[in-house]
């Protein structure tokens, strides 16, 4: 209680200063001279004696306390923007890949984003392994991006790492780009048969989500 009282008591003086400043500005306005206004403001807001006063401590403490309170209120206002619980709760999906022939791929949806599941042909695997990994923008081998013994199953997000378009090349008849993998029509990113970025503005390879084969033909993503 006593703190409140003190703050109130000390609160009187600083209130006076802005009033005087407003009056000074108004006066200066009518005289169209701003130089005087600034001078008046300076003297008035300082009071008679410049320098550190006991009251300054109360001012800083009060403003700091209010600042902490404002931050505490701001936190929920900011965090409400993040993905809500139901969005985050999207379970992992299971996909039966038995019907996908070599050279074919399918699109499915996981966390509201497209996923490409591609059954690579031996030629495509060979092409991916031929590449000098050191020279790539995002150096990764095909083995890094697939599961051991299942190198033909290339599973990536169908989200271009540039600005998020769905690249072409998963459905039959779509352009696969200069490197035989995927091609993003929005800004011209070319991906190779291991879905690695080879040309264009995208900074990284297509993302490989967390996945595991739970049987020979069923894959669990997420």
């Amino acid at each position: 209680m006593s703190t409140v009282k003190k703050t109130k008591g000390t609160g009187k003086k600083p209130v006076k200063a802005p009033k005087a400043a407003v009056a000074a500005t108004l006066k200066a306005d009518s005289a169209t001279s701003n130089g005087n206004a600034a001078d008046n403001l300076h003297i008035d807001s300082n009071g008679q004696t410049p320098g550190v006063r006991r009251r300054d401590f109360i001012h800083i403490a009060t403003v700091s306390f209010a600042g902490v309170g404002a931050d505490a209120v701001a936190m929920p206002l900011v965090s409400q923007m993040s993905a809500s619980a139901d969005v985050l709760a999207l379970a992992s999906i299971e996909v039966d890949v038995a019907a996908i022939q070599p050279g074919q791929s399918i699109k499915t949806s996981w966390r509201k984003q497209p996923v490409f599941i591609r059954n690579l042909t031996p030629a495509e695997i060979e092409e991916a392994n031929k590449v000098d990994v050191g020279g790539l923008r995002d150096p990764q081998t095909l083995a890094d991006r697939t599961k051991p013994g299942k190198e033909n199953w290339l599973i990536t997000l169908g989200v271009c790492t540039h600005l998020g378009c769905v690249p072409l090349g998963a459905a039959a008849g779509e352009v696969k780009g200069e490197y035989g993998g995927y091609f993003c029509p929005c800004h011209g990113s070319h991906y190779d048969t291991a879905a690695r970025i080879r040309k264009g503005p995208a900074p990284t390879n297509l993302v490989v989500p967390e996945f595991a084969f739970i049987s020979d033909t069923v894959v669990k993503i997420g």
Binding site: M81, S82, A83, S84, V87, R111, K112, Q113, G164
Partner: peptide, 17 residues
């Protein structure tokens, strides 16, 4: 980006805000 969209891709949360 996910904070702005309220999810991993544009969806209900993004449309509403």
């Amino acid at each position: 980006r996910q904070w702005l969209l309220g999810g991993f891709a544009p969806d209900q949360a993004a449309l509403n805000r």
